[in-house]
Every structure is written in structure tokens, then in C-alpha cells.
Amino acid sequence: MSNLLYYSRNRCTSVEQISDTTLKSSCRLQDTLTEAFVEITVRLPDLEITDIKSELTRSLHKKGMDTDKHLQKVIGVRVGPGMLKIIKGLIGEDMDCRELTFMVEECCHGVILAFTKDTLIDVPKDKGQIEEFYKNMVRKNIRMYNRCAAFAPGSPLVEGFEPLLK
């Protein structure tokens, strides 16, 4: 075998702060078969999607489909918990839309991660305080408990957080 690449995919999601009340989040996909772009505009502080644009340059599926019009259905949806179900429900999960739906989701995740990054700037530098920082984070937000390996029972970060088991 020649070790030549058989298939390649690049996906880039970027979030840009346009103004105090506006974010733009875009996802660009380029792979062996597909080239596509989706951009959402999000209004703060509600994180409401106020605009969406898309472009499907190369695709395996339905040519000439008005993807831009199709995606307008997500306008008004708020980026937040439960959004994936809403977005999938509104856009649909047909093969023709699946990639674009995923790209909308990636744009939304980008927005959430952008704010997550802002929060993580507050993580103390001192190693001894790092553990306490994350413990406090879980303490303040019960949803984090057992949501990943780092916050699962047995991890020092949730030590002493006794589950309310009967």
C-alpha cells in the first residue's frame, strides 16, 4: 500500500463577536465529497438565532435544493440545552439535510464553547486550587455530576458528593 490518503475531511467552526449583542458562528466543511458552509447569527443575551446562511458547493445529495430556505426554520430557536432536538425536528433528518443540520449544531456548540472558554479563564493557576475550582463548579451545577469521566463517582473532583440514592 502506498499510504496515500484515501479520504480527507476538514471542518472548521469559528465564532466571532460582531458587537456587544451579536455573535456570528460559522462552520465550513471541506472533504473529498462535500463542500459546505453554514453561518448563524446569534443575538445576546438570549442566544437567539436571528439569521442563517448556507452554501452547498459540492454534495452527493439533491442538487439544486434550496438549502438556505430550508434552514430558515431555525430562526428564533435559542442556543441552549435541548436545542439539538428542536433543530433536528425543525430541519429534518433526511439524508439531504443531515449534513447541514449537523453543521448548524456545530455552530451552536461553537457559541456555547466560546462562553465556556470565558469561564475557564477564571481557573486558578495554583495546582492546589484547581481541584477546588472544579469541585465548586459541580457543586453549583448538579447536572455536571456523572456527566463525564472527570466528574464520575471515583473522581476526586466529586469526592464527598454523595448521590441521593435510596
Binding site: 479520504y7 480527507s8 475531511r9 471542518r11 472548521c12 469559528s14 472558554k117
Partner: peptide, 30 residues
């Protein structure tokens, strides 16, 4: 100015007629 960026790269090599070797990288601000 960018507030956040995430890049994902997936590269696939066909090792033999029936096996794909997939290498994935995720790199973002966090």
C-alpha cells in the same frame, strides 16, 4: 476578532481491501 475556533481533521488511509485506518484530530481554544 475570533472568540472561539474549533478545527477537526480526519484523514483516512485504506490499509488493505477491507480496512480503513482513520486518524482524527480535534483542536480548539480549549
Amino acid at each position: 476578532m475570533l472568540k472561539f475556533s474549533r478545527n477537526k481533521l480526519v484523514s483516512i488511509v485504506k490499509e488493505d481491501g477491507d480496512t480503513l485506518i482513520v486518524h482524527g484530530v480535534l483542536d480548539d481554544y480549549i
